[in-house]
Nucleic acid binder design. Structure first.
Lengths: 248, 248
DNA sequence: GGTAAACTTTGACCCAGATCAAGCGCGCGG
DNA sequence: CCGCGCGCTTGATCTGGGTCAAAGTTTACC
């Protein structure tokens, strides 16, 4: 296991790729300067654990690039993914010592970290940060509740379709790819990780993906590269309102 | 359907039963005065809908007494409860027009409502409110994620045990009932509502409750009055660490 | 006090998804 | 170039919880 390196900030907040969507989105130039003082970057390799559940966290931060997962594990080993962290998502909880979940990088990842104590103090002085964090937390809560519907009431095929459409949607907003009608993206998760997200076994995930492919809902190139020829068809399969405000 | 009544505030914030746990918990006397100006109370009867999903909300507020549920419904009628609102819990989302969920009173309920616009403005001026709301939202997010594990990975018996232990725990913190060893409480939900919370059918809920009773994990008086003779036994059945910090 | 409606329990049966078991294909180190 | 390991697919079988059905119990309202 190579140790992750702490780098001197490789770039300014000003031209940070997540400048306008992360927890710092609303900050003024002067507020950014204060953040820069407690900030540092960390690189993680695919597969590396960022934080273990229960561990003391001395930082919070934002995903700059790459993808991480948030998972919970029972004593007997059953695991449930409870969050998928994409660029601009926030990691850690101000006002709490330890992490409640395992955070694992599933791809190589760069995080913009803030030392926890100073960040918490900064938050008290800087409403722009607290406001933005509240907004992001409310969004995450909505996402978590939407996922509760998926876990509690959807069948395996609908679950897979739901996951694909969420990844597709987030991927689309990320690197603004218009692609009229069809969507193309890479799955950032193994079949097993998908199973952990969906409350299924990896075998069922594999079977349902094969079924969606067979039925023409998706096209696969290799195991990970997905094309969705008809997005509203996918949404139907997910059991959601078709075209739920997608063309906004 | 009798129309709910809008009452002139029946009591002062100062002696409000949820004064120190609701969104106003951190407010100073002077801040409370400002809140009082935009506040009013509403009573709901058991079974009454507080807000329909999608409806425009012109207020936010706190549950003062009674219990409400937050549910999501698919077009074909499948429903999933995504939240249980107990006294001091916050209803509504600042910065969003409509409600994403149905909110339904399951018992007679009193809500302390704030007109939405003025509340939002107040929040910008009053860090104590925003801070507290952030804290409460983070707690709800943790609860939602814990519930994702329940929905995704636990079997029916563990689900029921999890629900019982959550209700017992929240009930205990509510009206500080020490009751060494044994816990006693009333189920605030029908079997069907429990099923909607747990992603089960009401038949399975009924069967598993009977099984827990048969096995001596719980005692029932009538359908709703529950005694838990051994809390750590219940936690075991739920698949959680036994005595997870319960005796704090 | 009686009847209807709502809620709950229990039984019989079935099926979606879990489990167990092979085997494939690709990338990597030797 | 080979062989090993990991991720993935597919098949066979099993089972927990869903579905359908009936009947018991409580509550609410005439």
């Amino acid at each position: 296991m190579m140790q992750d390196e702490k780098l001197k900030s490789p770039h300014d907040c000003e031209d940070c790729p997540i400048r306008h969507r992360a927890v710092c989105a609303r900050c003024e130039a002067e507020e950014l300067e204060q953040l820069e003082e407690v900030k540092y970057y960390r690189n993680f390799q695919a597969g590396q654990t960022v934080i273990w559940s229960g561990d003391k966290m001395d930082f919070v931060g934002s995903v700059v690039s790459g993808i991480a997962t948030l998972t919970q594990t029972m004593e007997d080993g059953r695991t449930q993914m409870v969050g998928l962290l994409l660029p601009s998502d926030f990691v850690g909880r101000p006002g709490r010592e330890g992490s409640a979940y395992d955070v694992v990088a599933t791809t190589d990842m760069v995080m913009c970290c803030f030392r926890k104590k100073p960040f918490e103090q900064l938050m008290e002085r800087t409403p722009h940060i607290a406001q933005r964090l509240l907004e992001m937390t409310l969004d995450e809560l909505d996402a978590a509740r939407e996922w509760m519907l998926v876990l509690g009431r959807k069948n395996a095929r609908e679950k897979i379709a739901s996951l694909l459409s969420i990844i597709a949607r987030r991927d689309a907003t990320l690197h603004l790819r218009p692609t009229e009608g069809a969507l193309v993206f890479d799955l950032p998760l193994t079949r097993e990780a998908m199973a952990d997200y969906l409350g299924l076994t990896l075998e069922t995930v594999s079977r349902q993906i094969s079924a969606l492919k067979r039925d023409g809902v998706i096209l696969l190139e290799g195991k990970r590269h997905v094309t969705v020829p008809d997005v509203s068809r996918l949404m139907e399969e997910a059991g959601d309102d078709s075209d739920g405000g997608m063309f906004a």
